[in-house]
């Protein structure tokens, strides 16, 4: 009896493992057009109304949670607001949030960069449900003309690029994702390099391409870009905040603070690049 039960357990485990490996293989090879991609896209679209509805309901709770987890910042902000306004804190927060939204909408409506590239404006709905990727979901998808790998910008600069895209949802892979990377050019000197993602760091690492790079603290870096490249040219990426080269080191360590930050961004524009 015990042996029979043990065999059954083993059989179930082996079946589950084999099914998992089959799915991984099919999905890795098939991409978004394979069976896995089709099922995934259908599931995302089916959940889209639920996500939107729940997001509307729990946004106040999310704001409260942000307040709990960033208590220090909120306390400082509250003290300043009390001094300046002596008004109800809730009203002030609401007004500021509304203003921020309007400013973001204005900013993406009048982007100072990529003026000739058509784009689709979208709203960030929710962050990643997992722990090993820096992504957010937006409320537009392939039905709105979006496709994987399209660049995503906020009013301040490059935010990332599209990952998986279903009919009504798209995932933005942020520049802070470990799988992200973008070629950049120093506006002042013309030196080039690659900014690679690091989800935990406030500053991202810039690996210079040149043997003798010329980066200085305060320099602005923008996308290199090319007609066939993953990003259009001259989209602001960030500002150089540190340059280190210890004696004997072969390479210069450059740190960049990104302009765009998904945590305080609600509206984005997805650039239809390459232009259809």
């Amino acid at each position: 009896m015990a042996e029979h039960r043990s065999n059954r357990r083993r059989t179930i485990l082996i079946l589950l493992v084999l099914t998992s490996i089959t799915l991984i293989t099919l999905d890795t090879r098939g991409g978004d057009t394979g069976i896995g991609g089709t099922v995934r896209n259908a599931a995302r679209d089916a959940f889209a109304p639920v996500q939107s509805g729940v997001d509307d309901l729990i946004s106040p709770i999310g704001d409260w949670w942000d307040g709990v987890t960033r208590a220090g910042d909120i306390k400082r902000e509250n003290r300043r607001l009390r001094r300046e306004l002596q008004a109800a804190q809730g009203q002030v927060h609401n007004a500021r949030a509304a203003l921020r939204e309007i400013e973001q909408l204005k900013a993406i409506a009048h982007l100072p960069f990529a003026p000739t590239i058509p784009g689709v404006d979208a709203q960030i709905v929710v962050g990643s449900p997992g722990n090993f990727e820096a992504t957010v979901s937006v409320n537009k998808g392939s039905d709105d003309g979006l496709a994987p790998d399209m660049p995503v910008v906020s009013g301040r600069g490059l935010l990332g690029k599209l990952g998986r895209v279903s009919g009504r949802r798209a995932t933005v892979v942020l520049l802070t994702d470990r799988d992200s990377g973008v070629g950049v050019r120093d506006v002042r000197s013309g030196s080039t390099g690659a900014v690679s993602g690091s989800p935990d760091a406030r500053m991202q690492t810039l690996d210079p391409f040149d043997a003798k790079p010329d980066f200085k603290v305060g320099d602005e870096v923008v996308t290199i870009g090319s007609a066939l490249g993953p990003f259009p040219a001259d989209i602001p990426v960030g500002r150089v905040v540190a340059v280190h080269r210890r004696p004997g080191d072969l390479r210069t360590n450059v740190s960049v603070a990104l302009y765009a930050d998904a945590t305080d961004t609600e509206f984005v524009r997805i650039l239809q690049w390459p232009v259809p």
Binding site: L13, T19, I21, L23, A43, P129
Partner: peptide, 17 residues
């Protein structure tokens, strides 16, 4: 969960199982 991640379908399924 895999349906909503960027990683291959089946990866979290295998780890959880």
């Amino acid at each position: 969960t895999d349906l909503f991640l960027q990683t291959p379908l089946g990866l979290a399924a295998l780890a959880f199982a």
